[in-house]
Design a protein around this nucleic acid. Structure first.
Lengths: 363, 363
DNA sequence: TACTGTCACTAAACCGGTTCACTAAACCGG
DNA sequence: CCGGTTTAGTGAACCGGTTTAGTGACAGTA
């Protein structure tokens, strides 16, 4: 029943060593201000007492936490099952570790992202996948916290990192068109209903990334004179299951595309699975193009044709920009980075089946 | 060049509203101690000033951070690329979120886990994959921080969660034996050289999980009278590439097993890939059994036969035990949970090729 | 009228460190 | 031996909140 022995404080060490609190603080943070013997003696006393400076108290006085926040609109549990996010985190983690910063994942607490933001103790925030009009973006800006936006729309006050989604999507669509496909199905990434603005129609408003990729698909299709009917665009959660059920839904609606443009690799892989279960061979009966180029993409059967984007680098660049802002007092001009994408052709795409239309090849 | 407007403090709100700091504090934390009008007025003033209570200061006075630490001996970047860890984190995150706790991943800072632990501000720690003799375990215990060990050896003072690795491994080996295989290759999970004790031989000492699974394999083999030579045990990093190169190495050494017992699914999938590149068909020429049953296991071709362990639940249970300790003052007895495993037979295992030996089937 | 109790609110101490302003002693050149 | 500089260290203020222990005003009772 003994009370948990509270850990020793700086005052305990000072008393035991017969010096002032200041001296103890010096012994740890600027030993050159003390004689060598005193510094060593204090350290020894601290050691035997098992003293560790309380990091919270230190944060308070220094007014910095040496911690960076990663802000995501989805629950952590969702996040970790998303390979795209894992790669992004890898990039963020690598850069943060190099620079001596800890990482804190901020995700909705009791369903409220605002609550989590208010409670978090970070020097700056990398926000991924939040649209610029997200209310928390305003909250953070109001708190005066440095922030870098990733995969969002550019906001003049904040640094940002994006990839050229539109060009990547265009390349994917052009590839498919060059193989003769005209009957297409687009599977978009759906934003969970819980977050973000909802249009008057009740449909969730498509967010930046989805919108940009769709523009890219459309640009290529229009240039080729191919029409993309709105009912040929379906949406699903960005997971294997999400892609699988989206394809099944489209099939049930009577759609019989010869090619699928998926907005993420997870969706593409799910679509391939569903297609196979429906008896389709890939790429003989159906071509599938993904987006992201996660590690898994090269390892599925057949290997997935997809649009590569430098996900790790996106994370690393975001941290770099964030720290530029965090570490200097002067207001420095926000920087906007746009990274390139490129199409990787693997085995999941092939010529349109049966009646090979003689069209001029674009690629 | 204007200095960043420092965010308002509680004193600013108090002055503006013409009340004491205490009243402002009450308005946020125990409004029932104030008259309704005063509380509302203070909140309004706070709102217009954009005041948010500083969470660091609050942590200091309350002496709790509402944050749980996840301690891993590997760099964050490594962690996030490991599907096993992703699942575990999912379980941890889910439970932590439910209970209103934030999550903080503690991994080596500048190569030092001790430094990271000293700097981290958490109410308790879930340590995964640390052997009980790891020096940081002692450090944390010394700091009086509640801790739960996962996949470690049981320590009487701390709660712990493990799975029955030995029984799972035994089931895997028995399955392989029942198919007639006698020429086996075991691919173990290697612990990075940087961490943990190293035996006098220079070989890293195998840690708990590896050791337990090996015992399970051996138990089954011995019961069947099959000898497992030491050179038929190789090790690799727990990743697809690690498994792939481990199998290639074994092959280069002249080993021609008919079955592989892999200690993780990632390794198993890598081994399958390497085997296929060497011209082997699975399961016709080579049977492969994994361990863990990550989501991917069911989706590779052929689907992987593996030992299922409840990874998410392991994370959730660890958090539950940790919070029992964190939230009550009384010293409560540490609890030790052992979760069950079970063999999932899919398509990556089949009868031994060519000369089907007539052996009594165990399964 | 005096006593008691409740209500609404406050001053000061405290959490555990860092840092600013200052001092006593030692050192140093002339 | 004197004035000035260094060295080694100290006390108090401070970071931004929470909490303890009261205080004054007012209402209700005897």
């Amino acid at each position: 029943m003994e009370r948990r022995r509270s850990r020793p404080r700086i005052a305990d060490v000072a008393r035991e060593a017969g010096v002032s609190k200041t001296a103890v603080s010096f012994a740890f943070n600027s030993p050159e201000r003390l004689s060598t013997e005193t510094a060593i003696r204090i350290r020894e006393v601290a050691e035997t007492l098992g003293y560790r400076p309380n990091p919270v108290a230190r944060m308070l006085t220094q007014r910095q936490t040496m911690t960076l926040g990663v802000l995501t609109p989805q629950a952590l549990a969702v996040i970790f099952s998303n390979p795209f996010f894992a790669l992004f985190s890898e990039g963020v983690a690598h850069a943060a570790e190099d620079l001596g910063y800890e990482l804190h994942f901020i995700s909705p607490l009791h369903g409220s992202l605002a609550l989590a933001v208010g409670r978090s103790t970070v020097d700056g925030v990398v926000a991924i996948g939040l649209s610029a009009d997200h209310p928390e973006v305003g909250q953070i800006r109001g708190a005066g916290l440095p922030m870098v936006l990733v995969d969002s729309d550019d906001l003049p006050e904040h640094s940002s990192v994006v990839v050229d989604d539109e060009a990547g999507a265009r390349a994917a669509a052009e590839h498919i068109l060059s193989l003769g496909h005209r009957d297409l199905l687009v599977i978009a990434v759906e934003r969970p209903a819980a977050e973000g603005p909802v249009a008057a129609s009740g449909e969730p408003v498509r967010h930046g990334v989805t919108e940009r990729r769709l523009r890219g698909y459309r640009a290529a299709l229009e240039a080729a004179g191919v029409d993309l009917a709105e009912e040929r665009i379906v949406a699903g959660r960005s997971s294997i299951d999400g892609g699988s059920s989206a394809f099944q839904r489209a099939w049930a609606l009577g759609l019989r595309p010869t090619a699928v443009l998926a907005m993420s690799d997870a969706i593409a892989i799910g679509a391939m699975r569903a297609a196979r279960e429906l008896g389709l061979r890939i790429p003989d009966d159906l071509s599938v193009v993904g987006f992201d180029d996660i590690d898994l993409a090269a390892h599925v059967d057949p290997p997935l044709t997809t649009v590569h984007q430098p996900i790790r680098q996106k994370g690393a660049d975001a941290v770099r920009l964030l720290l530029a802002e965090v570490e200097q007092r002067e207001a420095n001009r926000p920087e906007h980075i746009r990274l390139e994408t490129r199409l990787i052709v693997r085995g999941s795409t092939g010529p349109v089946p049966q009646l090979r239309q003689e069209v001029p090849w674009v690629d």
